[in-house]
Structure formats: C-alpha cells, structure tokens
Amino acid sequence: MRVLIVEDDRDLAAWLQTAFEREIGTADRVDCLDAARAALSASRFELVVVDRRLPDGDGVTLLTDLRAHDPRPATLMLTALDDPQDIATALDGGADEYIGKPFEPVELFARVRALLRRYFLDRGGLLQVGNLRFDIAHRSAFQGEVRLPLPRRELAILEILIRRVDRVVLREALEATVYGFDDEIQSNALDSHVSRLRRRLREFGCTAKITTVRGVGYVLNAQ
C-alpha cells in the first residue's frame, strides 16, 4: 500500500507521513499540485490525501486528474474548509472521503480504514495462492485462519507479488512500492526483505513460493 500526502503545512505533513507509514503503508509527501502530479506520473498510489488550499491551486483540481488514472486511487480530502458547500464541491469533484481540520487521529484512521475497505472490496478484496490468503481491504495475510505477523515492508512486497501472481514483478516495481522517495535504498535491501519473507512463509507452512528471476525480479506462485 502506498500513500501520497499533498499538504503544504510542513509540520502537519511530516506528522501525517509518519502516522500513515505506521498505520497504512509507505507514504510520500509533496507540498503542491505540480509536485503531486509528478509523483502520480512516476509511481502508483492506492490512496491520495490532499488539502484544498495549496500554493498553486485548489486540491479539488487534482481529483479531476485522478479520474483518468487506471486504477484510480482512493482519495481523501483533509482540509480546514468545512462549510457544507465546500464539502459538496469536493465530494462532487471526486473525493471519496472528506475530513475537516482540526481532526482527531483516531477518527482520521478509522475513516481511512473504512475508505480502504470500500475501495478494495469494489475491486474484489481477497486473493489466494495455495493456502496463502491476502485480504487487501485489511492488508492482512493468512495461512488458513492464522494471521501472518509480517513487518510493513514484507507485507508490501507480498501484496504486490500476490496481486500479480504467476507474473514476474520487476525489482524496480517492487522498490517503487516498498520504498518512499526519501528512503535511501541499499543495493541488497530488497533481496534481504524478500529472503525474510520467504523464511516466514515457510515457517507458517504456506504453499506459495517466491522465485527469483535473476537480474529481473521475483514471481509468486503455488508450489
């Protein structure tokens, strides 16, 4: 799961990035519409959190752009503009959820989780390979009824691999999903995460395996 935060308040943006990485997945932040459009053209995001008042325009205009994306990310408008007409403008413009500032963190992430459940259920939210199941709506992996306690980055790797089961996923695509723009990526970091994920799948008796395609990437399939 990858999140893009479009917010020009530096302190709030930094807090949001940390909180979303803890609660949801990899998060990147930008401070204007132009930077957001550049990020969206460079990487795929499942959730975009955007303010209304940005230095180069109204965040609602970004929602119009997102309608052309396939698949379109879920969208959350997070703004101090909480007049009923402002809310209607954003929702009619394409926002999936609207939260006014100031907000309570517990409510923010409850609403985000509900939004993502709707988003992924609309896209068929349960994937399975062998006895390994992945619940996209709740971002959880299971072997039978046992939930696998996977760290954030291993969970992100598994998610992209199981979404493209039996197809090779390029290293570059995995790195783009797992690491943020500001992360310093060591040359063997991805291999280390994949190795640990393989070990965990074996330990839990999963009949799905990750195969290395040397110099290209990885593929997940059933044994």
Rank of each mutant, 00 (worst) to 15 (best):
R2C: 10
R22I: 00
Q223Y: 15
E46S: 11
A36L: 02
E21P: 14
T177P: 01
L158W: 00
V194N: 06
D122L: 12
H69G: 01
I5E: 11
R118N: 05
D191T: 11
V3Y: 01
G130Q: 12
Q128V: 00
K209W: 13
F103P: 02
L54S: 05
H69P: 01
E172T: 07
F181D: 14
V178H: 03
V112K: 06
I185M: 11
V48N: 06
D8H: 00
E145C: 10
A110K: 08
R53G: 11
R123E: 07
G59E: 02
P71L: 13
A90G: 05
H193P: 10
R118A: 05
E21G: 13
R37I: 00
G25S: 12
R167G: 13
D135G: 09
R171V: 08
L81M: 08
R139H: 08
D9L: 09
M1C: 10
R111E: 01
A176N: 08
C32M: 14
L78R: 01
L155W: 02
E154G: 01
I157Y: 03
I210Y: 00
D11A: 15
G144D: 08
T207M: 11
G93L: 00
F45K: 03
E21H: 14
L148Y: 10
G94E: 06
F120E: 06
D182F: 13
D28V: 01
Q143D: 09
A141I: 07
L127F: 11
R202V: 01
D83Y: 10
P151E: 12
D9M: 05
G100H: 06
L47M: 13
I87Y: 02
L12H: 10
L63D: 02
A68G: 09
E159N: 04
A173G: 07
L121A: 15
R200A: 07
S41E: 14
V129E: 04
L170Q: 10
A36C: 05
I5T: 05
D70Y: 10
V112C: 03
L190W: 14
L4M: 03
R214Q: 14
L132P: 04
R153T: 00
C32Q: 12
L127N: 09
V219L: 11
L33A: 05
A36T: 04
V216C: 02
G130M: 11
R37Q: 09
A141Y: 06
A90E: 06
A90Q: 02
V112M: 02
L121C: 14
M1L: 12
G93Y: 02
L126W: 15
F109R: 01
A90L: 02
D51W: 10
F103S: 00
G125K: 04
G59T: 09
Y179M: 07
R147P: 03
E107I: 15
D8C: 01
V216S: 08
V3C: 05
L132N: 07
W15C: 06
L155N: 08
G25V: 07
A95R: 00
F120C: 11
R44C: 03
V165A: 15
V213N: 13
D96P: 04
A156Y: 07
R167S: 15
R22Y: 11
A137M: 09
I157D: 00
L54P: 13
V48F: 04
A222C: 06
L62T: 01
D96R: 14
D9G: 11
F103N: 02
V146S: 13
G217P: 07
N221S: 15
G180W: 00
G205I: 00
A176W: 05
